[in-house]
Nucleic acid binder design. Structure first.
Lengths: 88, 88
DNA sequence: GCTGTCTGTCAACATTTGTGTTCAAACTTG
DNA sequence: CAAGTTTGAACACAAATGTTGACAGACAGC
């Protein structure tokens, strides 16, 4: 699935919006730093457990994070994320 | 974690509220039925992927499902789900 | 009784998540 | 430039998720 990239970007955007490093967030969430890195790049799909841990570390409700993911996924459907839009 | 039982119950309650069988939901979500059974009993922790699939099958936003989980988790903290409340 | 539906559970298996370490690349700041 | 911070990437490994098939128990209605 290509969606994991979009999902990962949501994690990244929230983290950067708060000005936190991967090291700090992964430390608060009690997960490995390289793991968080992989999640943000869309190379790992977190479990619900990890979602809740990251939500706590980012100090916001997990449901809010998922809402942003739904919005991002919807955008990518509308705009199209196919190869034909890659050079616009 | 004991939370997985609470999380699983949310999936179950939503499914039963809609009067759907595990077979129908797992079929729509394209996951194994025994897998869904294990999730509902709290013996498996779904990935975000599986959450989105189940949300689509249950015809409701994933964020809404997570909201119900947060509410259920909060309730279990307040009421206490420790062993001391087990016999009340 | 019998039949069909739904669910729990087991087992074996493939796949993926998650952990630890290590190193290199990019970037900022003094 | 040099030093420090941050992140990407590649390992090997342990642990968990997810798949498939099969079988048993519970429960309803005929």
């Amino acid at each position: 699935m290509l969606d994991s990239v979009i999902v990962g970007n949501v994690f990244r955007e929230i983290r950067e919006r708060k000005g936190l490093s991967q090291e700090v967030v992964s430390g608060l969430a009690d997960i490995g730093r390289t793991h968080l890195s992989a999640i943000e790049r869309g190379e790992r799909r977190p479990t619900l457990d990890t979602l809740f841990k990251l939500a706590a570390a980012l100090n916001m409700p997990a449901s809010e994070i998922v809402r942003e993911m739904e919005a991002a996924l919807k955008r990518s459907e509308e705009n199209g994320s196919g190869i034909e839009n890659y050079f616009k």
